[in-house]
């Protein structure tokens, strides 16, 4: 009895089911996703990041930042990401598929050796701090296990009497007559980090009802390119309409 063709066909169909289920069908469902217009601001969310942030994404990818840092806020009731204040949207709500429309590649990460970075642009909107942290993590976060990324910086010799340039890092242990300045990679990487935010209130991420009033009164969240005001309670969750 020659079962070869049967095994082959069976394998083909068995594999085809998961291929259909996890490649074709999700693609058919998700390929319709478009940036949506946020009512309050009229801006599209998410927005295509600027050139410099895009270049920073390449640095993030090349150096494998995503092996230690996730970019995903888990929903309330599954882990405690929201309680840790990692969420955008007033710190209340999880990440959704819409947030990653322009991420290329999508770097969810699989481990949290370091903290989540989904909203790092909202949580630490301080470029100087970010640069210092990349150069010498322990100088700003004492117990950190993050390796220093000194190769993203340049040690420049100063001419006699020359003052350090404006972009020189304020770090200790710089020998006299030298300055530490970020290379292009460090600058773009920080631009990418500063641009990380998932804060638009979407149809699928309505703010918890009792928080709406408080959020509106403080007018938070307040940073990021496509910030929008949280919807008024009367509008309910359907404050945005597809752009197309």
């Amino acid at each position: 009895m020659n079962l070869g063709p049967l095994v082959f066909l069976g394998t083909f169909f068995a594999l085809a089911t998961s291929w259909l289920g996890f490649v074709l069908v999700p693609q058919l469902q998700l390929c319709r996703q478009q940036p949506v217009e946020i009512d309050a601001t009229g801006q599209l969310y998410p927005s295509d990041p600027s050139g410099i942030a895009k270049q920073g994404e390449e640095v993030y990818r090349a150096n494998g930042c995503y092996y230690c840092h996730s970019q995903q806020v888990r929903p309330k009731g599954f882990g405690s990401d929201v309680e840790r204040g990692w969420g955008g949207r007033g710190g209340k709500v999880q990440s959704v598929a819409q947030d990653y429309l322009y991420a290329r590649p999508v770097m969810f990460g699989s481990q949290r050796i370091g903290p989540d970075l989904t909203n790092i642009g909202l949580r630490k909107p301080d470029a100087a701090w970010q640069l210092k942290h990349l150069y010498d993590p322990q100088s700003v976060t004492p117990k950190s296990v993050m390796p220093p990324y000194r190769y993203l910086f340049e040690k420049r010799k100063l001419k006699l009497g020359q003052k350090p340039s404006e972009e020189a890092l304020q770090v200790a242990n710089v020998p006299a007559g030298y300055e530490i300045v970020p290379k292009e990679e460090a600058k773009t990487l920080v631009a990418y980090l500063m641009n990380l935010h998932s804060d638009a209130i979407l149809f699928e991420t309505p703010p918890p009802t009792n928080a709406v009033a408080a959020a509106s009164s403080t007018n938070a969240p307040a940073a990021g390119g496509s910030t929008n005001n949280p919807p008024a309670a009367t509008n309910g969750p359907s404050t945005n309409v597809p752009a197309k």
């Binding site: 150096n63 092996y67 230690c68 950190s144 220093p148 990324y149």
Partner: peptide, 22 residues
């Protein structure tokens, strides 16, 4: 080894954790 001291071999971009690990 990076988890024993983050500074081990940190100056070489080729041997940073995010490249050596994958």
């Amino acid at each position: 080894l990076k988890f024993h001291s983050p500074n081990i071999l940190a100056s070489c971009p080729l041997l940073t954790y995010g490249r050596v690990h994958p």
